[in-house]
Amino acid sequence: MAVLEARDITKTYQEGVQETTVLRGVSMDLHAGEVVTLEGPSGSGKTTLLQILGCILSPSGGDLRIQQKPVEGRSSHLAAVRRRNIGFVFQQFNLFPSLNALENVQYALNLKGLKGPAAKQEARALLDAVGLLDRAGYLPRDLSGGQKQRVAIARALACKPAVLLADEPTANLDSAVGAQILELFRDLAKRENRALLVVTHDPKVRSIADRVLQIHDGRLRP
């Protein structure tokens, strides 16, 4: 079953009198439990597509549905859809430096509506799932790159989102740690039946994919 359906997505930026079209009619589906990689050179529109699929940007045209429900362009609606359905993992980890590992996960749970001891318990379970429960009290500055990305994955899994989106998740990691992270990510997505889309430059990421999408000049290649 498709948890995410994108049809004929376009995105055009206006800078002064000049228009730049970044996406030109992208259509794709993501299914529960499926791992998909999106590859393409710099400037091909990968990150823009990821932001639209993650409800951070609204498209200039086309139709996006998540869990069979249409996504509207209003920022409050986008935020609500993001909160319910999307988990992000970023290249730069983007953990809160003033919160320890447990609090980083717990805060995401709080934002998604889970509060109190239940949130703490769930955060511990998520850290356990990524093998970092013993580092729960560490601040991000005291964690290695791989450990930070594990915390970020645990945070992305908060409240069981239907869609996980990862932007170059191994770009700041050495290849051995990167491979471990990808395996972990894949296992968790499969076990929890989440759809996982990984945007990458790195051809090695392909090894975990059920399907590979290529994007060039704002169009998906068949």
């Binding site: 935020a79 609500a80 992000f88 934002l111 992305a156």
Partner: peptide, 16 residues
């Protein structure tokens, strides 16, 4: 500011 961007990206609203 990037942390506030993260708050929004992981589901927080302006009100948060």
């Amino acid at each position: 500011i990037k942390e506030f961007g993260t708050v929004k990206a992981i589901g927080g609203s302006n009100a948060d």
